[in-house]
């Protein structure tokens, strides 16, 4: 009996050596997050992805795994993000007639909104005394992660810092779109989806697919265009 206990205590450490623990934990947290969301009466300000992330972060801390190791193992899941991003092209194609009908508003909104998405945050952070490396890490905050990493490296920001800002932005953008849609009287799923993808990258896009296929297609478009536009524009204006 006494020799069992040390082996049990060593389990997190031993199992963490294989990616399957991280995948199991992530999947469990995903379901617990969804369950909690329903139990709490679907609060708009607390989306399932945040609940799941809180559960997962607490579990990682309790098990004494550090985040770098968890993330290393969870790369097996994140690898699928590449093909999943490509997959966004299919709803985009299927909804192309809706996109064509709105091409003018989309083309006019995109450069203004995508530029302001980083300029607002930069001006506020600069006014409050943030240093240049922190500013460079905040600049691509509305861009999908794989593109944002490239931008941050080019601007000499810090990638871990940028990832933090990116994730908080994604969650906040989802919250603000959900909270502001009602008071502004916007029910058009095309507008809500586009705003979710443009401001909230993959996190906003995942939320848009909860609303509808149509909203998801517009979010994919917003996310893709913002990524391409910002990647080309930011390094140019960064003097």
């Amino acid at each position: 009996m006494t020799e069992l206990l040390p082996r049990v205590l060593a389990l997190p450490e031993t199992l963490a050596a294989t990616p399957i623990l991280a995948i199991g934990l992530t999947l469990s947290a995903f379901f617990i997050g969804n369950w909690l969301f329903r139990r709490l009466g679907r609060p708009l300000w607390l989306p399932p992805v945040v609940l799941a992330a809180v559960v997962l972060a607490a579990t990682i801390a309790l098990l004494g795994l550090d985040y770098a190791r968890y993330q290393h193992s969870a790369q097996w899941l994140m690898l699928l993000l590449g093909p999943a991003t490509v997959a966004l092209g299919i709803p985009l194609y299927q909804q192309m007639h809706h996109v064509r009908a709105l091409w003018r508003p989309i083309v006019c909104t995109l450069p203004v909104a995508a530029t302001l998405a980083s300029v607002y945050a930069l001006v506020i952070a600069w006014a409050l005394g943030a240093t240049p490396d922190v500013l460079a890490s905040l600049a691509p905050k509305s861009v999908t992660a794989p593109i944002a990493i490239g931008i941050t490296e080019q601007l000499r920001g810090s990638v871990p810092l940028m990832m933090g800002g990116l994730l908080v932005t994604g969650v906040l953008a989802t919250l603000f779109v959900d909270l502001l849609a009602g008071p502004l009287g916007i029910e058009d799923e095309r507008i809500l989806g586009f705003a979710l993808g443009l401001n909230g990258h993959a996190i906003g896009t995942a939320r848009a697919f909860d609303i509808s296929h149509k909203a998801g297609a517009f979010a994919s478009l917003g996310m893709g265009l913002t990524g391409v536009f910002t990647a080309l524009m930011l390094p140019l204006i960064w003097a």
Binding site: A22, A52, A53, L56, Y67, L77, L88, G164, F209, G216
Partner: peptide, 22 residues
């Protein structure tokens, strides 16, 4: 594509958790 998109939230979770640690 539908299958992958339906688990998009799961795929971004490892990154989202990072926010708590950064």
């Amino acid at each position: 594509s539908q299958g992958l998109i339906s688990v998009l939230v799961l795929l971004i979770m490892p990154g989202v958790v990072g926010a708590f640690f950064t």
